[in-house]
């Protein structure tokens, strides 16, 4: 079997595996929202009965649940999330379209920062295992994991924005300055986790027999690490990128709120507090699909980097 056909098969199999996940995501979200006591128009107090009935009819809320479900699935199939219940003149598609670039920019930059910084620090610590450098790096990493985003964010705002005045305390204007604090705070816990992960796997790889073989060949240590140790040490980090994405997205909900960024997370929280069914479902499905696709991508990269999976039929 050639390498390409193996990779292609792997890709197709994985792609097919995405469907049940997607279906589950939409179904669970739909029924959970519909289980909620109270409808989207409860907050507008004392709505006359016939108006409420009209509204319900307009949004098909008076139909049997199953029918609503299939109607919604049909809509999703043509990528239509419907109108927002709260933002009356907006469709959910429009709300998502205008907010996702902000979230994606912050999330993407944070991911990049976390990956580069995390692997670098992790390798640095592993190469100086059990020295002071290692201990302090790992102590800081543990702090990074333990201090929640929403604690770091206000503290950084206090120090760098309020006291020092170097950076804006919030808001978004697509300028670098407005990105620094959100990206850094969002990236910190993931960076810390990746650093610990990389250190652990690098140490394990450096103890493996094939590294001993490489050293016995008389290769300089730098070559041994770059050519022989780096790839296997990074692989666990690659497979962590899927869960990391989910973590970043959750974190971004808080970050967007703290820094008042006009992103998806902000809409999600307001939508959730106002029972804006369609908006909340739209955001969950959008993010869910994003996570599923990124997981898929991570999977492909992993398979591409790992010769065993590239060839093995079983996998």
């Amino acid at each position: 079997m050639t390498q390409d056909s193996g990779m292609l098969k792997h890709t197709l199999r994985r792609l097919l595996g995405l469907l049940p996940t997607l279906l589950m995501l939409i179904t669970v979200t739909f029924f959970m929202m519909r289980m909620a006591p109270g409808g989207p128009f409860d907050s507008e107090k004392l709505l006359p009965a016939e108006i409420e009935a009209n509204l319900n009819a307009k949004y098909h809320l008076d139909e049997p649940l199953l029918r609503q479900y299939f109607r919604y699935m049909g809509q999703i199939a043509v990528l239509d999330f419907g109108p927002s219940f709260q933002y009356k003149d907006w469709s959910v598609n429009e709300l998502i379209a205008q907010s996702y670039p902000v979230s994606l920019t912050v999330g993407g930059l944070a991911m990049l920062l976390a990956f580069v910084l995390g692997t670098t620090l992790g390798i640095a610590a592993a190469l100086r295992q059990n020295t002071r450098v290692d201990y302090s790096l790992m102590g800081i990493a543990m702090l990074g994991i333990s201090v929640p985003n929403f604690v770091i964010a206000p503290i950084l705002i206090l120090l760098l924005a309020v006291y020092a005045g170097w950076l804006p305390a919030g808001g978004w204007d697509w300028g670098i300055a407005s990105m620094v604090l959100p990206v850094v705070t969002l990236a910190l816990p993931v960076t810390a986790y990746i650093a610990r992960l990389t250190r652990g796997s690098m140490i394990e790889v450096l103890h493996s027999n094939f590294i001993r073989t490489a050293r016995a060949k008389g290769l300089p240590e730098s070559v041994v690490i770059r050519r022989h140790a780096l790839k296997p040490a990074i692989l666990p980090v690659i497979s962590f990128m899927g869960p990391a994405t989910a973590g970043l997205i959750s974190g971004s909900v808080v970050i967007e709120r703290i820094f008042s960024l006009p992103g998806l997370g902000s809409y999600f929280v307001t939508g959730a507090l106002n029972r804006d069914y369609t908006l909340v479902m739209g955001v969950v499905i959008f993010y869910g699909v994003l996570i599923i696709l990124l997981n898929f991508l991570v999977d492909l990269i992993y398979a591409w980097l790992n010769p065993k999976i590239r060839y093995d039929e079983k996998y």
Partner: peptide
């Protein structure tokens, strides 16, 4: 593969 925190938030909304 689902965004788990979102489901916690949904659960908190629902009940």
């Amino acid at each position: 593969a689902l965004p788990f925190l979102f489901f916690v938030i949904l659960l908190m909304m629902v009940f």
